[in-house]
Amino acid sequence: MTPGALISLKGVTKVYEIGEDQKVHALRGIDAEITAGDYISIMGPSGSGKSTLMNIIGCLDTPTEGIYRLEGEMVHEMDDNQLASIRNRKIGFVFQTFNLLPRSTALRNVELPLIYAGVPVDERREKAEDALKKVGLGDRMDHKPNELSGGQCQRVAIARALITNPSIILADEPTGNLDSKTGVEIMQILVSLQEAGNTIVLVTHEQYIAEHANRVIKLLDGLISDDTSN
């Protein structure tokens, strides 16, 4: 393992058991390292295991076998409570479908991770406002998701992902539900975040989206088929 590696995956497999004796090998042995400040795209056709890999990197799931180290923490050994805590501290998610709380304002949505981090109200509010201003939504804080456009929703989601100052931002098809013009805007935000020093892992199946990244990992049938740095 490279000393400076932020993420280190070694021999990671994931097997789903469907019914009796039926097993699906979603990941068959992934070895990869990601260094801090990287912008990585994970590509692959559906069924290639990229969602599974992203769930494991995002600490939503643990590998069946293998080692996953995130900033020195042994994620593969963690229970649900520890996983929740590491998600809270080190991962920022940006989803294709935004995944905002529909009945809460933009500000409340952005505050949410800090609630579970136990941050005091004033500090929470201040940070959330800053994060929203950073994504250009300073004037939309009290709007609920149904009062915002898709692009604005995704910006709220990005602000939410940024708020805990995570080790990596994990974006799963972040432009999949947006028109191309808005998609470009979102991609620009991600690029500027990387330039500001954030580590970004982007999951996509669109070549032109992946090209924003400085490293592209391609998956096929649960294995890495290609790993190129631009």
Partner: peptide, 16 residues
């Protein structure tokens, strides 16, 4: 269910 998923993704523990 979706809301619970979102809360869990941003760091809510089962206990929360």
């Amino acid at each position: 269910i979706k809301e619970i998923g979102i809360r869990k993704a941003v760091g809510a523990t089962p206990r929360n």
